[in-house]
Design a protein around this nucleic acid. Structure first.
Lengths: 184, 184
DNA sequence: GTCTATATCAAGATAGAC
DNA sequence: GTCTATCTTGATATAGAC
């Protein structure tokens, strides 16, 4: 009973995200994560000394992943004004394992460690700088940023029920809100 | 020292919302709510037999409150196409005690009883019917609905940091997305 | 390094005094 | 109807075997 397995950190974080999405942040327990990851609770705690550290790790991994995806998308919008906004749309457009995982990690963090929400805000810092470079188009760009992240959250939490095609349309329409030229 | 107080259900729900907003949904405990409401835990449990019922009551009250506010705003947009969308913007535009309370109740529900999220969805049903009346303008109206609720959530959770004036601007800009005439 | 077993504690819920 | 005191559970975290 209880065969020894090599514990994979990534697998644990995946399990934590699954549990959060399926059962809700309040039922994100060490037991549930260990079971889902197919390891023992002791093994889990050996890797992540506390539940708080587990959640931080989950959160940090998703923020990092998303920033990387955003940077890779950015290449496709070289030279365009508000390139980061377009890249953000491209990275958020389809509901994938990644976008669901990001939503789960934000949920867990907000509900259990709301004092760390400021780290989410920081992720938008560069976008806002992008936006603020152009006083004239600032309002539309701000609208686009809010719409992107709002749509992402609303879809991730299942608050509005649209088909995948409709969601794609929503993000496409948001893209049309972004000003065509930035003023400087 | 244990003076008898008349327990006010509304006051308890207010306390639950305060705790959720200030400490996070995970720290929404019966102890914290009782203390914040200035009553004993026993008194609290006498009113709301379980934590789950407390959260449901908080959630239901806010959904009802918001629907009422939406209906009262609706009077100002009589005859306009997509009147409900405009009314929803008017009701969401400023960050008030009401909007914060609604965000708190949604947070608590999502994190502790995600199976009830579908009740949030229902609240949008009428708006979506409003939207679907016009195939032609549907996309823009859908975009507006997603943007409204997304902006509401993102602001309520503190994910993007804008000034009150900037938020007002965002909602005003969303209003301009709503089609001027509905096709029927 | 991974496991089982256990200690500790916090929180939901109950019982009964007032 | 509201309180205090207590019960019970479930979850985090620790100790120690393998």
């Amino acid at each position: 009973m209880g065969r020894r397995k090599t514990i994979d950190h990534e697998r644990i974080l995946d399990a934590a995200e699954d549990v959060t999405l399926e059962l809700g942040a309040a039922r994100l327990t060490l037991d549930a994560v260990a079971t889902r990851a197919g390891i023992s609770k002791g093994g889990l705690v050996y890797c992540f000394a506390s539940k708080e550290l587990l959640i931080k790790a989950m959160f940090t991994r998703e923020m990092k992943r998303f920033e990387e995806e955003l940077l890779s998308e950015l290449a496709h919008f070289e030279g365009l004004p508000f390139a980061r906004l377009h890249a953000r749309i491209a990275a958020s457009k389809h509901e994938t394992e990644n976008t669901r995982a990001k939503a789960a990690s934000i949920m867990a963090t907000i509900s259990q460690m709301p004092e760390h929400v400021q780290e989410v805000r920081q992720a938008y810092t560069e976008d806002m700088e992008d936006v603020h470079r152009s006083a004239e188009d600032m309002r539309r760009a701000t609208l686009a940023l809010v719409a992107i992240e709002g749509a992402f959250l609303v879809r991730g939490l299942g608050l509005i029920d649209l088909t995948p095609e409709e969601w794609t349309g929503v993000f496409d329409d948001i893209a049309t809100l972004i000003p065509k030229r930035s003023k400087n």
